[in-house]
Design a protein around this nucleic acid. Structure first.
Lengths: 101, 101
DNA sequence: TAAACATATGAACACATATTTAATTGTTTA
DNA sequence: TAAACAATTAAATATGTGTTCATATGTTTA
């Protein structure tokens, strides 16, 4: 994988996390597996929409699927996803700094 | 700042990094200040486009501006931006894992 | 097998946004 | 002050995409 391709993949991942609904979905399954319908009801989103988003997240290997009977449980794929979100949250919490310009 | 607002801000930041041109711009000024025109020529983007993107990045406090004479130099705002990118890069480098589904 | 439940998929639409072109603002220097 | 250079801004367009609605696929149980 060359450099440009890596940047492109990075952008894709960030783009996925850039949608509020999708970010909420990621946060909902960040620490424990949760079913599609539970995600939907918890976030007040339609089942269809959640499923659409999960498909994209799964394709990017940001979440993993685990079928248990009729239901499918999803959970965040690895530690990095958690770290990224935590780092970004810290950025938000930082006080604004003075700018020149 | 309440929880929903924080999620919204997080999504905005990720969304900004989700555009390939903008991500490249961030990477270009990640470790040292660089002028708008130098960013543009290095990335093969128009000055106008780079300026547009920098305005958004500056508004989100992801980069800082520093005018020196005619030129304006930009640099990534803080460590968190660097950490986030590094974490995400590690995610990409991880080998694919088996899925159930 | 049929019915009920859970999830996934397809098509269509509405909206957001990345990019271009052109004009403007700001800074230096001749 | 005028000209040259650097960056910003505005308007317009073209493309992408989040969401909805309807339908299909897959799984369990009666």
């Amino acid at each position: 994988m060359d450099h440009e391709e890596k940047i492109s993949q990075l952008a894709d991942l960030f783009s996925l996390m850039g949608d509020p609904s999708r970010l909420r979905i990621i946060l909902t399954c960040l620490h424990e597996p949760i079913s599609v319908s539970d995600i939907a009801s918890e976030l007040g989103l339609s089942q269809s929409l959640v499923s659409h988003h999960l498909r994209l997240l799964r394709a990017a290997r940001m979440v993993r699927a685990d079928r248990r009977g009729k239901q499918v449980f999803y959970i965040a794929a690895d530690e990095h996803v958690r770290c990224v979100i935590e780092d970004m949250a810290e950025h938000i919490n930082e006080p604004a700094e003075l700018e020149v310009g």
